[in-house]
Amino acid sequence: MDRLIYTAMSGAKHILEQQATTAHNLANASTTGFKAQIDSFRAVPVLGNGLPTRAFVVDATVGTDYRSGSIEQTGRDLDVAIQGDGWIAVQRADGSEGYTRNGALQINQNGQLQTATGLNVMGDGGPISIPPDVTITIAKDGTISSVNNLTAPGATTIIGRLKLTNPPASSLKRADDGLFVTTNGQPAPLDPAVSVIGGALESSNVNVVETMVNMISLARGFEMQMKMLENAQNNAGKADQLFSMNG
């Protein structure tokens, strides 16, 4: 009887956690460059006195769906999308290096090239500064060039190059701020094979229809676990009645 309770109780708990992850993915279906989270579960025995005949469910490490989203043309000079595998390196709030595929870049009042959330974009030699009164273009290899708007014709000047990297997926993890970081905390090396598409952004890779269907399936799974607990309670009540009759 208690084996059924262990299974249903832990199953219901983790279905709720998976439902939260699914809701989080759905909420980010329109977030540029977002990568969907994946939950996985496994059964483990309950250790204690006697044989390990009871088991419950535990949530394994949350994974990530690294599939690329669709490329959407914007025509904006500061928008870039990673073509294929790879990441844009940025400076996190604590000074460490993080990685994103959200290429909606901007220039702050101090001329620093930043992400839409205000984080400095990293170049070959650190954060990238953009001089005033220029028009910039970003090449396929991440090279940033500028043309002075105050001279005609303006001369093209290379400002720097985006730090584009492509560490193995197994060496990355999602941080609390939504960026990806290396598991060992060390900066990933520059990868010259990574290329970008200028004037475009990568959409989220969340499949809205698939996610909605998954939410419905999880809701039904939770109802099934509750039904199992109800059945366990009914069986326990009937067992008590039998013991009373025998007494």
Rank of each mutant, 00 (worst) to 15 (best):
I138Q: 01
I138W: 15
I138S: 06
A139D: 15
A139E: 08
K140P: 01
D141L: 00
D141N: 03
G142L: 01
G142P: 10
G142W: 01
G142F: 00
G142D: 08
T143I: 07
T143Y: 06
T143A: 04
S145H: 00
S145T: 11
S145D: 00
S145C: 11
V147L: 13
V147Q: 10
V147S: 11
V147T: 13
N148T: 13
N148A: 13
N149E: 03
N149R: 10
N149Y: 14
N149L: 14
L150D: 11
L150N: 00
L150S: 13
A152C: 05
A152T: 04
A152S: 15
A152H: 07
P153F: 01
P153Q: 08
G154L: 08
G154T: 07
G154E: 12
G154K: 05
A155L: 00
T156R: 05
T156W: 13
T156K: 15
T156D: 14
T157C: 07
T157P: 13
I158K: 12
I158Q: 15
I158M: 15
I159T: 01
I159Y: 02
I159N: 09
G160H: 10
G160I: 10
G160M: 07
R161H: 12
L162I: 12
L162A: 06
L162F: 12
K163T: 14
K163I: 08
K163C: 03
K163N: 00
K163E: 07
L164W: 03
L164T: 05
T165A: 08
T165K: 11
T165V: 09
T165R: 06
N166S: 04
N166I: 04
P167A: 08
P167I: 01
P168C: 01
P168G: 11
P168A: 10
A169R: 10
S170H: 10
S171W: 09
S171Y: 11
L172H: 09
K173Y: 06
A175T: 06
A175P: 02
D176W: 06
D176N: 09
D176Q: 14
D176K: 06
D176F: 13
D176L: 00
D177N: 02
D177F: 12
G178F: 00
L179V: 01
L179H: 12
L179S: 08
F180W: 01
F180T: 04
F180K: 07
F180R: 04
V181E: 08
V181M: 06
V181Q: 14
T182Y: 09
T182R: 12
T182A: 03
T182N: 04
T182I: 01
